[in-house]
Simulated assay, not measured.
Amino acid sequence: MHVELRCRCGQLRGEVDNAHPYGHARCYCRDCRAYARFLGADDVLDAQGGTAIVAVPPDAIRFTTGDARLACLSLSDRGLLRWYAGCCKAPIANTARDARIAYVGVIADALEPQDRDAAFGPPRFVLNQASAEGQVPGTPLATAIGGGRIFLRLLAARLRGLRNRAFFDVDGAPLRTPQVVDAPRGA
């Protein structure tokens, strides 16, 4: 099943194949909050400051329209690359800085809701629970299983030589130069 990926204004569109997802989690880290808030996209955060993220291999993503609108920021010189639509500032995904790490954390709100829920279900585990802006039910076993599953899939992708071609060029450079921003990370 292919789930539509789109920015808020619809100028950037694509699709995500759900054939081999790594997992669906809710992240409460300060950096995910800072990313959303810097873009003025507080609506992707839940009441405790968490962001739903669907982790997939990079070959599961294909941009179909408006990929020139894709923009990139980072919260530090070495931090994750945080991809967004430059046209409407919609958060799209997170990647490592290294194209050899075959991981894309798609912001769940960038996916068509009905198809997203059918394809990936609800978030199954939480990450960075201690950084939440309020009480969040823990999922220790689900987090261990989900984290282990992501690690094993990353390892398998590395052994197969899979590279991130959705957000990086053939030489391994990001498709867009990351803008390093100083966004308050707060509590």
Rank of each mutant, 00 (worst) to 15 (best):
D46M: 05
A47W: 07
A47G: 14
A47F: 13
Q48M: 14
Q48R: 13
Q48C: 15
Q48E: 14
G49F: 09
G49D: 02
G49R: 00
G49T: 05
G50N: 12
G50H: 02
G50V: 08
T51Y: 02
A52D: 15
A52K: 10
V54D: 14
V54K: 09
V54P: 07
A55V: 06
A55S: 15
V56R: 03
P57R: 14
P58A: 07
D59R: 02
D59P: 03
F63M: 09
T64E: 08
T64K: 12
T65G: 02
T65A: 13
T65C: 07
D67V: 08
D67P: 03
D67F: 00
A68Q: 08
A68V: 00
R69M: 13
L70W: 06
L70Q: 06
L70M: 08
A71N: 13
A71W: 01
A71Y: 06
C72M: 00
L73P: 01
S74E: 04
S74T: 03
S74G: 10
L75Q: 13
L75M: 10
S76Q: 10
D77L: 13
D77G: 15
D77R: 15
R78Q: 15
R78W: 12
G79K: 04
G79N: 08
L80N: 09
L81M: 02
L81Y: 12
L81T: 08
W83S: 09
W83D: 05
Y84V: 03
Y84R: 06
Y84H: 15
A85I: 04
G86V: 10
C87V: 07
C87Y: 06
C87M: 01
C88D: 12
C88Q: 05
A90D: 12
A90V: 10
P91R: 06
P91T: 12
I92Y: 06
I92T: 02
I92G: 04
A93C: 06
A93E: 00
A93G: 06
N94W: 05
N94V: 00
